[in-house]
Design a binder for these strands. Structure first.
Lengths: 146, 146
DNA sequence: GGGTATTACGTGCGTGGCGCACGCTACCCT
DNA sequence: AGGGTAGCGTGCGCCACGCACGTAATACCC
């Protein structure tokens, strides 16, 4: 059982990394977002305006890396750097309207793609899978990673 | 449903990449294998001796990258370069005994770790999860990636 | 059968992204 | 008021990658 799950996870990881997913999801969208910059965009969408240093932990990167990625997104008009009114040293990375739309659209596209393939599953199996996948995150071997 | 699975997959990807998994799995093992070299080692274990060019597609890398990674594994004594007897231009990458043992041990460790956390699941749920995970690979949105 | 095109390999070169550390500005605290 | 601290952006060196070149062995073709 452990072996089967391990092999499946390995395959899943390999395929998702190789699927050129970002390229597919960003079709007909502004050019600023790719596999490198998306985690920053998504992180901001998840939690609202934050500093690069704050995001760094979540993205799994150094502060400098987040800053550089944010610069790209800024150049593409998806992120805005705004001085923190409470602390003028700090800089808050904020999604522009276009940035928020972009990440929403990408998520919608991915979800639709998954939904579509789940539609042909036996009734209830898809729901069971979704539940167990979440359980695997909460109780599985990586439960206290982040 | 699609959204829930998409988010879970994202989390799963993020955590597995961040879990320092290779570091944990290679504890008390020779130093030659890490997250960079493991895919080559594992690929060889899966299919037997192959050329670097052949492996490249599966690893998702250029021929040169595979060759360089193989050189590291060779220096660590886990892989051997053997001339192909049928074509003296070709070079076959082959696992040494130590290389085969290493990959087997790493797989065993990962499987055990997963198994352990699955033991506390409700009866049958783990089996259902394993089955559906495999189904997701075979019929899901990434079914024809590789 | 010999000469040319092709195939396979390893490696130098340029590129890109990373972490570290520096300098600078703004804040805090006594 | 002034020294210490926190937060930022960016230059620097490093490492892995893909591309392309050179070399050696094979395949093809007249």
């Amino acid at each position: 059982m452990g072996h089967a799950v391990a092999e499946a996870l390995g395959d899943l990881l390999k395929r998702t990394l190789r699927a050129n997913l970002y390229q597919a999801l960003t079709e007909n969208i502004g050019e600023g977002v790719d596999e490198v910059t998306y985690p920053v965009l998504s992180g901001l969408a998840r939690t609202g305006p934050r500093s690069a240093a704050d995001l760094a932990g979540e993205v799994g990167l150094d502060r400098s890396g987040v800053s550089r990625r944010a610069s790209r997104l800024e150049a593409a008009g998806l992120v805005r750097r705004a001085p923190d009114p409470a602390d003028r040293r700090a800089v808050l990375l904020t999604l522009t309207d276009q940035g928020a739309e972009t990440v929403a659209l990408m998520r919608e596209r991915l979800a639709a793609r998954i939904e579509e393939s789940l539609n042909s599953w036996p009734e209830g199996e898809a729901r069971s899978f979704a539940r167990n996948l979440r359980r695997f995150l909460d109780e599985g071997p990586f439960k206290d990673v982040q």
